[in-house]
Design a protein around this nucleic acid. Sequence first.
DNA 1: CGCTTGCTTGGAGTGCACTCCAAGGTTCTA
DNA 2: TAGAACCTTGGAGTGCACTCCAAGCAAGCG
Lengths: 153, 153
Amino acid sequence: MIQSTPVATGVTTPVDVCTVAPPAHPRPDGQDRYTISEVAAWTGLSAHTLRWYERIGLMPHVDRSHTGQRRFTNRDLDWLVFVGKLRLTGMPVAAMVRYAELVRAGESTFEERRELLETTRRDVLARIAELNGTLAVLDHKIGFYGSRPPAAD
Amino acid sequence: MIQSTPVATGVTTPVDVCTVAPPAHPRPDGQDRYTISEVAAWTGLSAHTLRWYERIGLMPHVDRSHTGQRRFTNRDLDWLVFVGKLRLTGMPVAAMVRYAELVRAGESTFEERRELLETTRRDVLARIAELNGTLAVLDHKIGFYGSRPPAAD
DNA sequence: CGCTTGCTTGGAGTGCACTCCAAGGTTCTA
DNA sequence: TAGAACCTTGGAGTGCACTCCAAGCAAGCG
């Protein structure tokens, strides 16, 4: 299952990574220079995965300390939160990389970005419909096995 | 994406594979002895996948012709339709195999089967909630890119 | 200063769900 | 009855999304 990897618990501010400089929301320790393990803990992704995201172009190039260690900014955190959402949609990594490329390419790609997101949106709606279809079957069968699905949820 | 593999288009009868002999619904050519390629065409699964399902125990053992070729019955078709639904829920194959084992084990496993399906149901609800969450983000961002999401759907 | 813990890299490995292959036997149509 | 099309098997290969490894610097504390 693609389901819930615990992405970024504890965020309360509405996120707004949209391409062009959103006002950065100060994060946990407010330094704007987080190590990879801090970011890993904060996002729920592994450090491995964060490096991998950078390698495949899913992260804009991350700042480095004078000795070459990664220092993530609040902006990077915002981006990762958004990427986490895209991942939850079921969007393949290749498409997320494409989106990241468009973001790097600047404003001229607004239209294509919108299209990509709208395609994703349609996919999500289709998937929800599909899941609702399976719910019907599941409920039918659960009824068959002698108990109603729990009323609450 | 796990999404829509075209599973069994053209089914109109409500399916009811539930374990204990449901009245078989006559299928397309009404012979009750379909070759693997007929079943592949009918379910949208590949012949490879059908053989693989049998190998891993996701299919009850399929009838054979006197020379050893598979001959699927309407019952098998019903089962495959149901398995297709389970697959759409995002249930891992291993869990579907577990369910198939329980079915083979007989009535004493009703309770465990019900639990398995209810767990799956909860997973589906959670996934739908997750997807609705992504829709909110998607819509926000699509609005950001200068056009509202299409009104219809 | 030394020590532990953390970070770096390229490349290899993992798990899932298929997907395909080769070599040969079977079935159907003309 | 020939030939095309289809079926069989075990095992190997594929694509995706990570996940881990080894060898070697870097950072922070007493």
